Each structure stands twice: as C-alpha cells, then as structure tokens.
Amino acid sequence: MSTALRAAQRGDQDAFRRLYRAVQPRLLRYLFVLVGEAADQVTAQTWREITDGLGDFRGDFQRFRGWVTVIGRRRALEHLSGRGSPAPVHAQQPARAAGHDDAGRVAEPLSADAAIALIGGLPADQGEAVLLRVVMGLDTRQTAEILGRSAEAVQATACQGLRNLADRLQRTVAAPRTADEPGAAAPHPAPGDR
C-alpha cells in the first residue's frame, strides 16, 4: 500500500481509491464508537482534510493510517465539544437485527458491528486502546502518541480491554437458555407438583 500512497500523492485517482478502501471501513468503525451516528459526517470531514494535506504527508502506509486516525480523532473531539460533550463517549451500539440475541450472535462468528458494539461497551480508555490497536491496526507507539500516554500504559490498557472482551464473550456463551428458546431443556417439576 505504500506504493499506492506515493502514487496517490502524485495525483493517481485509482491509487487514492485503493487507499480509501483500505482505510475507510476501519476509520468509520472507530469513529462510530466515538461519535455514534455522526460518524459518516466526521469521516467525510476527515477525508477532506486528508485530501488537502496528502501532498505534504511523509511516511509509509503504516504512518499514513496513524495520520488518518489523528485527523479523525481530532475531528471527532471537535464534534463532541460542539455539542457539549467533554470527551469521547461510546456511542450507542449498532441496532441488532430482529430475532438475534447475544448468545446466538456469539455462536456464529462475530460480525464487525457486533464486535464494535462489544468494544464500545468497554470503559472508554480500554475501548479506544483496543480500537486503535486492533481495528485501526496501529502499533503501540502510534497508539501511545495519539492517546498522549506511555507505550507501557497503552499496552496494559489494551490488554485489560481484550481480557474484558474475552470475559464478556465467555459470559455470553455460558448464559443459560430460557425454556422457550429452541434447545432449552424443559424445567423439571418439583416433587410436590406431580
């Protein structure tokens, strides 16, 4: 992708489209957790700024993803401060399809929306560290720079977030089924009820 980045900086529209397709889904998921339904608007503002500054950007594709994330996060914080929120907040979870429960969703591979919803339920610092490391694909150093924390603190926070996610998934899988769900065992009558 670094080759596409250099070509896009020279004005190659196909190369820019490749960059956009490589980064946009991750960026949109990240921003959705920060600003909810305003993610499309914030993402559009982010790409306008990226387009304006692309010629001056220096670095490879990994640094480009970090640069895009910094711009997107700054735009999200500006959006949140404009409506009176003091800091990034976890947005509402994406709407579930009718008839899907948590246990059913975990029995299948998690969809991207379900995974983002789980991450969005973490404490804010853990959620953002996991989003930056796993969803955006940034390394620990880049994540630390974006969050203004030490690399060790980011590593510990991301690990705690991943442990919390694993615990939540485990609890969801182990949740007992109710009697009216398919495959649920019928309750045994009490000895005096026969």
Rank of each mutant, 00 (worst) to 15 (best):
R29S: 10
R17I: 04
V130A: 03
D125W: 15
V23E: 06
S81V: 13
V42S: 06
L110T: 00
P176E: 09
T178Y: 09
L162E: 09
G82L: 00
R177A: 04
I71W: 01
A144K: 09
F61N: 00
A44G: 08
E49R: 14
Q45N: 15
P189I: 01
G192V: 12
G72Q: 04
V134D: 15
G161F: 14
Q93N: 08
T46M: 05
R177G: 06
E37N: 11
Q41E: 14
A39I: 04
A115L: 14
T140I: 10
D180Y: 14
L122D: 01
M136Q: 13
A112G: 15
Q45S: 14
E128Q: 15
D167L: 13
A190I: 09
G72D: 04
D12F: 10
V68T: 10
A97H: 06
G137S: 06
A97W: 02
A129E: 08
G72V: 08
A124T: 15
A112I: 05
G192L: 13
R177H: 03
Q41D: 15
H79Q: 10
A91E: 02
A112Q: 15
D60M: 02
R73E: 03
G99I: 09
V134E: 15
P187D: 00
A151G: 09
D56Y: 13
R83E: 11
A97K: 08
E78F: 05
A151K: 11
D139S: 01
G99H: 08
A39L: 04
D12R: 02
G137E: 05
Q155M: 14
L80Q: 06
